[in-house]
Design a protein around this nucleic acid. Structure first.
Lengths: 231, 231
DNA sequence: CGATTGCTTGATACCTCTCAACCCAGGTGG
DNA sequence: CCACCTGGGTTGAGAGGTATCAAGCAATCG
């Protein structure tokens, strides 16, 4: 597909899901000496539920490959996605006995499960492990805090812009991002509707900030302007 | 001030700030055997900055009395309050070298400071401490996750309702809440404007859901309806 | 080929923001 | 004692951003 045609956003080839997981770069921090047992990876198909809200929290998880969403459903069907986790991220550690959100596979993915006993037995187990778990928890906390700012005080344009920059960063800084999730996922993560997300992305293309070679692939043509949007 | 006069919300006595801190009940979980040193409490005056965004994270803190807000400022002056912390809450633990948000005293308050060295030296120090810190971090994480749902998927009425219920809960379930913070603080916590918060609270009074004996004091007359609002 | 899913676009409604005025309580100082 | 000022809060009118409702396109799948 050749140079960009401003208003032609409706005919783009799709991208096989299987290719998506590869584009995500593993987290930077090291995992050796983590103290976590080397359990076998479990496979979840795209869309599968890893655990649901209210399920007994018998285990927590680490993403090996693919993307996982953490979300909550309101009684009237509204959904809020609290986070997307990629390879290297830990999720599902709970203080209480139950999971207070759901975890679902955005793409086909592999995760390692660890028994929650590890957490309650921390004092008796490896001390390095404690620090490792704390650092994972603090990482997730910092991410959640940034997310609050995004949700509470930013416009649709700023939300989508920050979202794209976040995934550029997670893809190792490459300007071409392959989105693992649907527009609906993005909307529920940003606290918008799917229509607003779609319109905003289209607007960015019209403004010459991004290219959209296919629906799930977005190339940032003008990072400066994009970053300025998210000031 | 006698029975409620529907539209008389503009003449209410003020409440001395000093009285507010007392109304907050300490967290339920125990702190003995925490392993944290028993450092002396530091006093901060109402409005004082405990640390700022970008400050070197030499210490983290625990609230002894009063209320602390964690917030972030955008370049154009918008502010998002990520959390209010009360007696027993830990705040300011960072993974990186800098604080990524600010902490300020909502009321006069006392906090205990702990050297960040404690975190990086975890393996060598008390193992029970590790678990304690992890549990604090997970508590803050769970709170942040709930906050995301509030910010992303709820209307003004639902936000304010959930906010009031939260503080009723923090006050030990008493239906009369004394708010430690200004309307602006509430607005910045809920991702609304001060006018919307004010209007929403007034509306709740007109609806007979709450009473407002003074600006900072709110009594829930109809908890059932209030909870139904936040379904 | 029809059905389905994901996405885009348009028209309109509505909720919240913005801008503005005003009220109240408290403090200060003449 | 009162005039004045300030900070926090409330209320109104209008604007604007996002949601809602609806239609249609593209790609995939059976």
């Amino acid at each position: 597909m050749s140079a960009y045609l401003a208003h032609s956003s409706a005919h783009r080839p799709a991208v096989p899901q299987a290719a998506i997981a590869q584009t995500i770069v593993a987290r930077r921090y090291d995992d050796q000496a983590a103290g976590l047992p080397s359990n076998p990876a479990i496979h979840f198909e795209q869309g599968a539920e890893i655990y649901g809200e209210g399920d007994e929290a018998t285990a927590f998880y680490k993403v090996v490959s693919g993307v996982v969403r953490i979300c909550k459903f309101l009684s009237d069907g509204r959904r809020q996605i609290e986070a997307f986790h990629v390879a290297g991220d830990l999720f599902g550690i709970e203080l209480g006995a139950e999971h207070c959100m759901s975890a679902e596979a955005v793409t086909d993915c592999r995760v390692v499960a660890y028994h929650s006993r590890i957490v309650s037995n921390l004092p008796k187990t490896d001390a390095a492990l404690s620090q490792q778990l704390l650092s994972y928890a603090l990482r997730n906390l910092a991410r959640a805090q940034e997310h609050s700012v995004l949700l509470g005080r930013r416009s649709a344009m700023e939300k989508v812009g920050a979202f794209l920059l976040d995934w550029i960063d997670r893809s190792g800084g490459r300007r071409a991002v392959t989105l693992a999730m649907t527009r609906q996922d993005i909307a529920d993560y940003l606290g918008l509707t799917i229509e607003t997300v779609s319109r905003t992305i289209s607007q960015m293309e019209r403004d010459g900030i991004i290219d959209i070679p296919s629906v799930r692939q977005i190339t940032v043509k003008d990072p400066k302007t994009l970053e300025a949007l998210c000031a």
